Computed example of a mutant assay.
Amino acid sequence: MELEAVSNEHLGRRLRELRAESGKSLRAVARELGISPSAVSQIERGLMRPSVSRLIAYVSAIGVPLAAVFDVPEHKEPRPGLAVRRAGEVAPIRLSGGVTFRRLSPGPTPDVEFFESTYPPQAISNAHGQFLRHEGYEVGTVTAGELTIEFETEIVTLSEGDSITFPCSRPHIIGNRSGTVTAVATWLIVHA
């Protein structure tokens, strides 16, 4: 059973909680993102859905990994060195343009994030056309459709089964140029 995507309100509430825990003010985050405090407030109240790049910039600005946005399942009896997450325990996050992120790792893992991203036809990671850069090293494999990763000096198109790796500090935009086929990829982001 697949869970419904996290609502805008739930995502906004979680981002607000994480910002508060970080000690950063709404204005400070707005300044770092290069947007108005009103826009940050709209995201945190669930009135505006962020793009992939805006979400990643937001969590970078408050110093938390993307995985922190996902709720951790109710605490169960821990098993030393073992974590299990059953299908349907963590809801995906739907971002602007219909892009969906789903955490694949069974729980928080130090210095590593493991996600699946789904890009519907014509969806891109940043509707504003600005290149994204963040911390870490990215490894991705396309599991369905085609994704295009645009760098400042080149464009790489990946088909099903193709993989890529690059430093996240290299400015990039990820998109699905197909008009009819949804693209899906798994991503491993290493922060060590």
Rank of each mutant, 00 (worst) to 15 (best):
V52D: 09
A91S: 15
S105K: 05
I189N: 04
H128M: 05
T186E: 12
I174G: 14
E74V: 11
E74G: 02
P120E: 08
A91K: 11
D111A: 13
I155G: 05
G46Q: 09
S178R: 04
R94F: 01
T118K: 12
T100C: 09
L158W: 03
L66V: 12
R102P: 03
G81M: 04
S125M: 03
G63V: 03
L188Y: 01
T100R: 08
F115T: 02
P167T: 08
P50N: 02
G97W: 07
P78W: 02
D111L: 14
L132N: 13
F151S: 09
E32S: 15
D111Q: 12
I189D: 05
A61M: 04
T143L: 14
T118G: 01
R45A: 13
G175E: 11
V84R: 10
L66G: 00
S51D: 09
I174H: 10
L15S: 05
T180P: 00
Y119N: 11
E154I: 06
G23C: 03
P121R: 11
H128V: 05
R102A: 15
A61Y: 08
L104C: 09
L18F: 06
V112E: 06
G140L: 15
I93S: 04
P171V: 05
P110G: 06
S178M: 05
S41R: 09
V84I: 15
L82T: 11
P78R: 11
H10K: 15
Q130N: 13
T141Q: 15
E74Q: 04
A57W: 08
E152V: 12
L158H: 03
Y137Q: 12
E74N: 04
S169C: 06
A68Q: 04
P92R: 06
T186F: 05
N8T: 12
L11M: 13
Y58P: 05
S105G: 11
R16D: 06
R31N: 12
R16V: 05
I35K: 02
V181G: 04
S159H: 10
L26E: 10
V84L: 14
T186W: 01
V40N: 03
A83D: 13
P73F: 01
E74P: 00
L147Q: 12
E154A: 12
F151R: 08
P167L: 02
V112I: 14
E44N: 10
A87V: 12
H172G: 12
I124R: 15
E74L: 07
P171K: 05
P171E: 09
A61L: 05
L132E: 13
T186P: 01
I62G: 10
L82P: 04
T186S: 09
L95G: 03
G63T: 00
T182N: 02
G175H: 09
L132F: 08
L188K: 01
G63H: 03
S41L: 03
Q42R: 11
M1Q: 07
S41W: 07
G140I: 10
A185G: 13
G12H: 04
L188E: 03
E113F: 03
A192M: 00
A39Y: 14
R103M: 15
V156F: 02
I35T: 14
I174C: 10
V142Y: 03
F166D: 11
T143P: 03
S22G: 07
V142G: 09
V64D: 01
P108S: 14
R85C: 10
L104T: 09
T157E: 15
E32G: 00
I35E: 06
R19H: 07
L147P: 15
F131R: 01
V29M: 10
E146N: 14
T165E: 15
